[in-house]
Design a protein around this nucleic acid. Structure first.
Lengths: 133, 133
DNA sequence: GCTTGATCTTGTAGTTACTACAAGGTGCAG
DNA sequence: CTGCACCTTGTAGTAACTACAAGATCAAGC
């Protein structure tokens, strides 16, 4: 699979893929005899993972950390646990916030459906103290 | 409440607050007689909302859209519904991905606790087709 | 065989969302 | 009256892309 196809398959521009490679997020893929990058299913998974994680608001270095952990999970338990627990806390916080946001958005959409004018409290809900910062 | 205090209360730098104001995310607050920005609870809510939303991976323009909707929800139902539904779809997608990620991270942390070496499949899980792109 | 489009490289520059100064000035609290 | 927080404008740096451009190679269709 060449870069263009890989891009189409994952919704990533070729330039971004090369950028990820430069930045060390994506290992340099094997090359064809004509020096084209040759992506396999593994690289595609990685790309999709990066894309999703970034959409969820994780930084490139967090993504890197997660992938490194997945790549060799037989590092000292201490290290793995530290990373995983920290990420887990972040994930939980995001889940909480997203659930609150979903609830409010659902209310808006529902009231809209019934022709009534929405009362939208998204701001208040996400502004709520919940874990603070 | 002056800018510094508002910053401390929301975990935002004064410079970022002024930046948000310049970019139209935050309405210009009233000024004290000595020209200091004077923030009330409403502005603080807004700031917190912006911070949270950004952490969840929403763009500034999406945040703007959401706030505009919250500000006058008696716009044509069509408009409100269109925005809210789109955001809702995004929220749902993020929730799905985060739940999958949480599951994997939990597994890692758990196996770590039991001294066993983790088998970490975060990449595979988020790479999964689920809604694709 | 030749054209067309995808890829290769390097490099520069634009965008978004900040962050960090600096300079020069005002306000307020101890 | 000293020092710190704030005011303004402006420049520049960072992260994570995105978009060219130039010059070259390659692969597929006519």
């Amino acid at each position: 699979m060449r870069i263009g196809e890989a891009g189409r398959a994952t919704g990533t521009k070729s330039e971004t893929i090369r950028y990820y490679e430069r930045e060390g997020l994506l290992p340099p893929p094997p090359r064809t005899s004509s020096n084209y990058r040759d992506y396999g299913p593994d690289e595609i998974s990685r790309l999709r993972f990066i894309k999703r994680s970034r959409k969820l608001g994780f930084s490139m270095s967090q993504v890197k950390e997660l992938m490194a952990m997945a790549d060799d999970p037989d590092q000292p338990c201490e290290t793995v646990d530290k990373i995983a627990s920290a990420q887990l806390r972040e994930v939980e916080a995001k889940l909480t916030d997203l659930r609150a946001l979903r609830k409010e958005l659902t209310k808006v959409v529902e009231s809209c459906k019934h022709g009534t004018v929405a009362e939208c409290r998204v701001i208040e809900v996400l502004a709520g103290s919940g874990a603070g910062r």
